[in-house]
Amino acid sequence: MEEKINREKYKTLGYNVLTLFLFLAIWTLAYWLIKSPFFPSPLMVFNAFLELLIHGDIEDVKLGMHIQQSLWRIFGGFAAACILGIPLGLLMGLYGRVYDSTKVLIEPIRFIPPVAWIPLVIVLLVGYFRFVFIIWLGAFFPIFIGTLLSVRGVNPLHIEVPKSFGASRFYIIRNIVLPSVLPEVLTSMRVGLGIAWECIMAAEMIGGERVGIGIMILKYAQLIRMDAIIVGIIVIGIIGFGLNEIFIFVEKRIFRWKEVVSI
């Protein structure tokens, strides 16, 4: 059984490596066919990557520094979104009346894209908080709404079991509601993180700072240096992918009861 699962894993890995090679091959082929100064080859992008990594960009800021700054901003905005979104989602899920009475405010705000807030944010906030606010706006609603809906989706029977034994409200929230919504909360956090990652570009382009992946891309966009721009884009993708994998790994660890094989 174990061996079979392992073999499946290697197979999947192999196909992914193959996909990557195919992609690079097609890219190289396209490079040969197009022959444009604005269309770099994979090798050129790799060289730009090394240059950015070792020597830094036109302002001598190294790629690692850009990544670190962007991650730090994402972390701030995402943490704020979780800290506010999860408890608020739980509260409004448990007390439907709170949500119903504040719907008039919550629902319209939900549909304002984070980018629309940018002019306001430029005027009102400075430095780190500009980024945090925009990322927070993007990540908050998926986390908040996801948590709220998951609370409403708790199986009523699972609540009635302890209730029939005379359990307190506190016991039911702690032992039934929380463990029951946790998987969905983590999923909505994963969605929120994806959106946070999307927002970082927009946020960094207004930030007026010198460091950050988004800013790095912008700098090279002005120079029309496609190779460096693509490095930035790929870095964003890979880090997002990495963060997502970490989430999935944690989920699998916590929710053993979901993973177990039935007999």
């Binding site: 699972h158 009635e160 079991v161 034994f165 005379g166 039934i176 009861w257």
Partner: peptide
Amino acid sequence: VHNISIVFQEPSCIPWRTLWDDITMGLVIK
């Protein structure tokens, strides 16, 4: 107030609890 137990028609095991934790639930609550 009263010591009542109910077995529901629909499957009512708590998915994230082991058999032991599920069976002792009422005792813990009481």
